[in-house]
Design a protein around this nucleic acid. Structure first.
Lengths: 123, 123
DNA sequence: CGGGATCCTAACCGATACTG
DNA sequence: CAGTATCGGTTAGGATCCCG
């Protein structure tokens, strides 16, 4: 296990810490977002959709999301191999959080654009 | 600048990445949560409320939240010194995200309790 | 009380190479 | 295509001390 070794002890059961325990991985919410929007369900698609996430990190985060029961994986024994990731019903329960993030992010981007700050890739 | 040096490039302006740019610091959403709930507004109160966050990290995250315009600080020139943190109106706009996290965290805790998993501090 | 400065280690995480 | 393994630099972040 490489990342997210239960950083949050959830003293007094703070609900926000509990949530972070599951989605605080660097790319997890972005992955969930793409799964929600069905922009991407295959490993390669996700990788292309989230350019700044290395394939290694993508694999790790997917594994942890699967371990935590938020997503499930289906493998097709074909050549070339194919894999399909999707939200479990438990994973779907977290949609409101991700959609709230989407919504605020759009607002934030708009504010930045109005202030002349470039929102696009800053490469 | 110590953490969160714009990790996310926001390629194609992915709104979730934009949000993460602001709240992905390890304790930021927890801090915001406590400020929203007014559990704590002083440095010491926040420190006591978020036990697992060191004072150093707390100071750092507060600074970044202030830099990003989500919170503001008022200093009272008294002995002993007193500081009051509060959400800016911009900071208030992110409440839905934090409250969604709270709500899902409560659900998640409940599920864990039902499965006999201890949610409380695992010190 | 509310922080800042330093030191230092564990961990994150990218690059590269390899496999079925 | 969909990953895993290993290496190694970078950084997050704790511990400690200090100061107004």
């Amino acid at each position: 296990m490489d990342s997210n070794r239960h950083i949050y002890s959830c003293q007094s059961g703070c609900p926000v810490e509990s949530t972070l325990q599951v989605i605080s991985g660097k790319w997890k919410s972005v992955i969930l977002y793409h799964l929600i929007k069905h922009d991407a369900t295959h490993f390669g698609e996700l990788s292309r959709a989230i350019r700044d996430c290395s394939r290694r990190m993508l694999a790790l985060q997917l594994k942890e999301l699967e371990r935590d029961g938020l997503i499930s994986k289906r493998q097709f024994p074909v050549i070339p191999p194919k894999t399909e990731y999707s939200l479990t019903s438990f994973g779907e329960s977290i949609e409101p959080v991700i959609l709230a993030m989407e919504s605020w992010g759009n607002y934030y981007n708009k504010v930045n654009v109005e202030n002349g700050i470039n929102v696009e890739a800053n490469q």
